[in-house]
Design a protein around this nucleic acid. Sequence first.
RNA 1: UGUCCGAUGGUGUAACUGGCAACACGUCUGAUUCUGGAUCAGAAGAGUCCAGGUUCGAAACCUGGUCGGACAACCA
Length: 567
Amino acid sequence: MSETQTRKNEKPARSLNFIEEIIEEDIRKGKNDGRVHTRFPPEPNGYLHIGHAKSICLNFGLAEKYHGITNLRFDDTNPIKEEVEYVDSILEDVRWLGFDWEKRLYYASDYFEQLFEYAVILIKKGMAYVCDMPAEEISASRGTPTRPGKESPFRNRTVEENLALFMRMRAGEFPDGARVLRAKIDMTSPNMHMRDPVLYRIIHTSHHRTGNKWCIYPMYDFAHGQSDSIEHITHSICTLEFEVHRPLYDWLIREIGIYAPRQIEFARLNLSYTVMSKRKLLELVKENYVKGWDDPRMPTISGLRRRGYTPDSIRNFAEIIGVAKRDNVIDVSLLEFCIREDLNKRANRVMGVINPVKIIIDNYPETLVEEMEAANNPENPDAGIRKVPFTRELFIEREDFLEDPPKQFFRLAPGREVRLRAAYIIKCERVEKDSVTQAVTAIHCTYDLNTKSGMPDSNRKVKGTLHWVSAPHAVEVDVRLYDRLFVVPDPDNAEEGKSFKDYLNPDSLKEVKGYLEPSIRLAKSGDRYQLERLGYFSVDPDSTEKRLVINRIVPLKDSWAKTEKKN
RNA sequence: UGUCCGAUGGUGUAACUGGCAACACGUCUGAUUCUGGAUCAGAAGAGUCCAGGUUCGAAACCUGGUCGGACAACCA
C-alpha cells in the first residue's frame, strides 16, 4: 500500500478533548509511571441511560486509547435504594455496549471494613466526631450557601468518647438516625460540602451484598474518593456536579494519608425531546406512562437496545458529541443520524406495506407467480439477493397514490406510471371507490412486460419507485411505530404549575398492522431490517412463532414530507 | 449577598496553545439513483457574551461586568 493510500484510509486525526490533554500531560510528566486506570462507578439504583453510555464510552475509551484499564465498580453505599436487579441490568448494558472490565468488577461495599478503619484514623486524629443532633438540626445548622453554619455542640467530644460511640454505632446499639459521624472541618466554609459533612449514618437495613453485617453505612462522599484511591485509579472522571465535592475528597485523602487519584469533571449529556434523570425515568415506569425500563421510547440503554439501536451506533454517538465542561443539549437528530448511518450499511432490505391499498394489474395472468430478484442491500453486494413473489394483486402504500396529485408528486396517480421496486413499471388506469365513503378500494393498473428489473429494455425513466407486496403472499405482522416521547425539546423545563409529564407525546407509540414480503418469516428476535422507503425496524422479543412484532427504530429521511409541508 | 464552573453559526465540538474561525449534525441548492433513502458536488449561516487592557497581532492572556449552571439529603 502506498504512502498516499495509507493516508487516505486513515481517519483524520481528531484534536484532543480537554481530558485527553490532561492525561497526555500526566503521561508526559511521568505521573503514575504513565499508567492510565479509569473506572465506571454506577449506583445500582436504576437502569443506565444514554448519559451513562457517554460516561462508559469515555472511561473505557480513554483507557483503551492510552493502553490502560477500566474497573467497573458499584457505588453501593445506600442499601435502602439499591437492588440486585439493577446490578444485573447494569452489567448487561455495559457488556452489550461492548466493554470488558475483565476481572475487575468491584463494589464499594467490598471496602466497608477498610473505610471503617479510615474513619477511625480520622477520629483518632481529632478530625471526625460523633454528632447526636437529629437530621433536621444538622441541616438547619449547616447554614446556606451565603450564610455560614453553626458548630455542633458535640463537636468537641474527646477522641476516646468519639471512638467509643462510633464502635457502639457499629455494634448496633442505636436506632436509625440517632447519631452520625461527621468530619471536623469548617462550618464557615464557603463550600457547603466542607461544613462538617456526615461521614457515616445508621441504617438498620440489609445490604444486597453484605447482608446484615453492617448497620452503619458510609456516605457516598466518604466512600467514593477512597474507593478510587484503594483501586489506584489514576483519573477519576465524573460529571460537573461533583466539582464542588473535590475539595472534600482531597481533604479526606490527605488527612487519611492515602494515594490521591486525579478527579476530572465533564458536562453530562442532555438530549432533546427526552428526560434523563433517574427519578423522572423511574416515575414514567412506576406510573405506567411506558411499559418498563426497556420500553423502546426510553432513553435507557435497555430501551435503545430493544428499540433496535446497535452498540456501534451508540458508541459512535458518544464519540461524535465530544466532551467539554459547558452545558449542552444534543439534538436527538444526531442520535438518529448515527443509527441510520450504521444500519444503512448493515441492515438488509425488505419490502412491506403499513397502510395498504390494493393494486390489480389487469393485464397480468391471474394465476402467475413470478419470483423477483431483489438485492438484500444495495450498499453491500455481499449481502446477496432474495426472491420476492410477484402476482396480479398487490398492496402498495395508500400514501403512494393520489387521485389529484400536485406537480411535485412522483408517485402513482391516474394515467401515471411508476416503477415497482425490483419488478415492473405499471400504469394506473382507473380506480374503484366505495360508493358511500368515496374511499379508494382498489387501483387498476396495467404493466409493461418489457420493464422487468434487470431486463435490457427495463431502464425507461419513471419518476417514482414504489415498494409493494404480493397480496396473497403478504405476512401480517404487528408494527410498533415509535416517535419521540415528548412533544417539546426540553420537557425538564416545565412552565409554572406543569410537570414534565404534561409534555408527553400522546402519539409516541402507534400500534398498527403491517404486510411484509414472505422472506420475513426467517426473522429472529433482535434482527434489524430496512423496510424500503419506510425506515429501519427491529424484531421485538414479544414476537412469537406465529406472529412477528416489529419496532420502528427510526424512519428514513423523508424529503418529500419536507417539500409537502412547505406547500 | 457566598464559593466553584462555564460562555465560539440553529445544535455539538475544534482552532497545532497569540497568526485574520474549522469539522459534524441540521438547513438549502444541484447532480445522480429502480428506496423522494444512500452517494457526490456546492451554498448559506458565527466574527467567538459585553467593555476595557496587554500585543505588530487576541476566540485564546489580564481586569471588570453580564448571562447560564452547580452547591444548603443522615441520596449518589
